[in-house]
Amino acid sequence: MPTLTYLQAIGRGLWEEMERDPAVVMLGEDIGVYGGAFKVTEGFLSHFGPERVLDTPISENAIVGAAIGMSYLGLRPVAEFQFIDFIACAFNQITNFVAKSHYRWGAPVPLVLRGPCGGGVHGGPFHSQNPEMYFVHTPGLKVVCPAGAADAKGLIKAAIRDPNPVLFFEHKFLYRRIKEEVPDGDVVVPLGQAAVKREGKHLTMVTYAAMLYTCLEAAEKLSQQDGLECEVIDLRTLLPLDKETILGSLKRTNKLLVVHEDTRTGGLAGEIAAVIMEEAFEELDAPVMRVTSLDTPVPYSPPLEEYFLPNAEKVMKAARDLARY
């Protein structure tokens, strides 16, 4: 098995899908000649040709719009946002055109919208956001937030093959920092399935994307320092949400902590807490707790951003509070 970075794994997944299926085409800003701002699509243009790798004007509405049209013909367009923050520019196309299409008139929209999200790289308010919840709140979309390299490759394949529109949020902090063995060949990770990344009996941490590593770090330290064994769940897909894995773990640990890099109010933690209240209230030995970013824009200066983001210490503190409850 080759060792690939998270970024290489996504690139490899896209590459293999384009090799496999001539219906897969790509469009986005600077994805061709330049290979994308983060070089995910480097070499694609010369290999697959300009008919399949389309450099576009700076027009997010047109990029998504054209992808919609192509997908109506049975093509599998993959559109890139240079930074996922710019998905806001295409909000209307995504929430009104894409998401409602199958429900309203039975027209499936098999497209993938992907791009780099997340903070920790001092990108400031417009190059660090985690806008997933706007879309988790929109029926008709699927939302994927991979954390591991192998998962990222398997999930991008599943996203491209899915008959529904999939938003694929790649955490830019992980692009070159995460390196792992990625299985060769056509390994698809199905959408809508969470994965238990560490087993434990005292409490459950539910998380996704870059916060998986923060939680794993916290869990390791808690095990060493406090003898506290935390189970860590990587959601991988936020919509549809894998409730079964969360509830199954809660049944074993009876305590739940949700950690996400997204801001607090209206974040996924609130939804997970509500699901647990409705479906597993009796299992709880303590209130569901959450560690999230602050309810502010993402600040630019390193000390500000560090203060804004969750980290292992914040997670450990919350976990200890929860364990003591």
């Binding site: 085409v25 008919e51 399949r52 027009s59 509405n61 047109a62 990029i63 998504v64 719009g65 054209a66 992808a67 919609i68 049209g69 192509m70 997908s71 109506y72 013909l73 093509l75 367009p77 209307n92 196309q93 009104n96 055109f97």
Partner: peptide, 16 residues
Amino acid sequence: DLIPVMTGIGLGARYL
């Protein structure tokens, strides 16, 4: 919104 969508239809058809 239909303008880029129909552009995509046209481009997709040409591709095919």
